[in-house]
Design a protein around this nucleic acid. Structure first.
Length: 253
DNA sequence: AAGAGACCCTGGATGC
DNA sequence: TGCATCCAGGGTCTCT
């Protein structure tokens, strides 16, 4: 996509476009060229030669498909960005939770995000001090994108299990050693998830259409009633912060 | 400050 | 087979 110009944009589900209003967004991106592609947390950032950023969040079921114009369009494509060279970016999104933003200042959208967990500046000491400065239930805090950017429900549970830490723990009760282990675990799980092409439970696909394989490596997610791989405990499901939470009561403390 | 619950949506799985 | 209910990888908003 880099180097291609944006010829036009079509939208069939108005709420997909978060800001600005669609016709204004259309006017401002038509004729621009995609200079760079970046990611921040769970947001995809298209840097345009106009200086503006086109930002997309896929939420639960969003997919970006780069395909030739004129080819069969799958169901649930709500926004299409037409590129030079008869290519188009099709934003397919069954549940319609995804969003598109255009802004001259990407910090307007990304400014509230916490640190990138895989960056060198995200150290164990930083995580520990961040945890000490809050008094919140740990698992929902890990899902708070303004605390750390990019951790989702699956990887929060998997990280906590690897770290042998109970998801209901209050953040400022973690010892320095526990913070260190959690830090290592988060990084380990995210790196393995990337290596494995993400987790396909139902909708997620890699850019080439293939499924991810990380779901094969789940230790707790979706395993309620099954035996823990590390001890003799049984994985339980509970709800924390409104989200399914899987953990082993006997080895996560 | 932080937690609970509603809400945004569609579709698949399960139970009766 | 049909219908109701629950659940889902995310995130925002209101109320308390």
């Amino acid at each position: 996509m880099i180097g291609r110009s944006i010829v036009d944009i079509n939208n069939y589900w108005p709420r997909h476009i978060s800001m600005p209003p669609f016709e204004e967004l259309r006017r401002r991106i038509t004729g621009t060229t995609i200079d760079e592609l970046n990611r921040r947390g769970k947001y995809l950032v298209f840097g345009l030669d106009s200086g503006e950023s086109l930002i997309i969040h896929l939420k639960m079921t969003g997919q970006l498909l780069l395909e030739q114009s004129g080819t069969a369009t799958p169901e649930h494509v709500h926004t299409v960005i037409l590129l030079s060279g008869d290519l188009e970016i099709r934003f397919r999104d069954v549940r319609k939770f995804g969003r598109v933003y255009l802004t001259p200042d990407s910090s307007e959208i990304l400014g509230k995000l916490g640190p990138e967990p895989l960056s060198t500046s995200f150290t164990s000491e930083l995580l520990h001090s961040m945890l000490q400065n809050r008094r919140r239930v740990l698992k929902p805090l890990m899902l708070d994108q303004s605390f750390i950017a990019g951790i989702g429900n699956i990887y929060a549970d998997e990280s906590l299990h690897l770290a042998e830490i109970e998801p209901h723990r209050i953040s400022n009760t973690l010892t320095r050693e526990e913070s260190r282990v959690l830090h290592t675990s988060i990084r380990h799980i995210l790196e393995r998830a990337i290596e494995n092409g993400g987790a396909t439970i139902s909708d997620y696909r890699q850019p080439d259409g293939s499924t991810g394989e990380m779901q094969r490596s789940f230790s707790v997610y979706g395993r309620s009633g099954e035996v823990c791989y590390r001890c003799t405990g049984v994985i339980e499901r509970t709800v924390l912060g409104g989200r399914s939470t899987y953990y082993c009561r006997s080895c996560q403390r």
